[in-house]
Simulated assay, not measured.
Amino acid sequence: MPKPLSAADHAAVHDLADAANSADGVRPLSERTLLDLDLLHESVRHLLVWQGGELAAYAQLGRERQGELVVHPAHRRAGHGRNLLTNLAGQGAAAVWAHGDLPAARALAASVGWEPVRILRKLSRPLAEEDSAPVTLPEGYGIRGFVPGQDEADWLRINALAFADHPEQGRVTRNDLDRLIAQDWFDPAGLLLLTDASGAVIGSHWTKVDPAERAPAADGSPVPAGEVSVVALDPAVHGRGLAAPLTAAGLAHLAARGLRSVVLYVDDDNTAALRTYRRLGFTDLEVHAQYAPVSAARPA
């Protein structure tokens, strides 16, 4: 049975991730992976490599058999990455994320015969004064903030409908939601709910303000940035002109907080969403790749 990390191990993983972020300019572990450091679950496994009293490398095998790994900058080129990747594969990992898709990560994947199977783009754009303008919704619809203790079931229902085919977002549980709500960055006013004439929740735009997030402002300088975290719309109301104002409402909320830039994540094969975001002025900031064995990348 897997064991939870000790408090010391937990802190060491965060220190390792911070060191890699400083060296590479990209966060090596996703928010979900960091949240799962606290999770005691039979399908979440932690692999730690210590060297000279320091955490040299860390890997996690997550709940959908997806893995992530990071090697401390001071302990690279010692075989830790390859050993962890081989270990993840041996424990049943179907794929492993390479955040930033850095050259070293691509080389490591190629060395064991793994190929990219999914590309996730991180986009950004500056926030301008016009983003603060009031948003006009089609008649009969409204937007309000999330009410903890009241709206959890409705948010989970809409999220599941909107992301039924998404490998991660579509599997968010009540426990996952509760852990997100418990984070320091959570702001109920920033979780916008779209309602119809009856007051029923039919969509949401979850904005996020992580104090560590940075993205280019209009002058190109890195500034604190908000995030378009999750935009969800009930498929039953698609085609009613609701997606654009729902997205704009989130941007207006972030702009009202004084933020000068915004980021979001979108799958490379989601051409409709990419087209929308490009039209809104978003440009590439980072690229994240998921690698898998060739047999998984190219089914027979």
Rank of each mutant, 00 (worst) to 15 (best):
P2N: 09
D18I: 01
A20P: 12
N21D: 11
L37R: 08
D38C: 13
H41I: 13
V44Q: 07
H46W: 10
H46I: 08
V49P: 14
A56Q: 00
Y58P: 04
L69N: 08
R76G: 09
T86M: 13
V117A: 09
R118C: 06
K122F: 13
P126D: 04
G140C: 01
G142T: 07
I143V: 00
G149C: 11
A153C: 02
R157S: 08
A160I: 15
Q169N: 13
G170S: 09
L177T: 09
L180V: 08
I181H: 00
D187I: 02
G190I: 01
A197T: 06
S198E: 15
V201S: 02
G203H: 03
H205T: 10
P216Y: 00
A217S: 07
A218E: 05
A218S: 12
G220M: 07
G220D: 02
S221Y: 11
V223T: 01
A225F: 06
L233K: 08
T247W: 12
T247Q: 03
H253Y: 07
R260C: 00
L274T: 05
R275Q: 11
R279M: 03
G281N: 03
F282M: 03
L285V: 05
E286F: 09
P293Y: 06
A296V: 07
A300Y: 12
A300V: 15
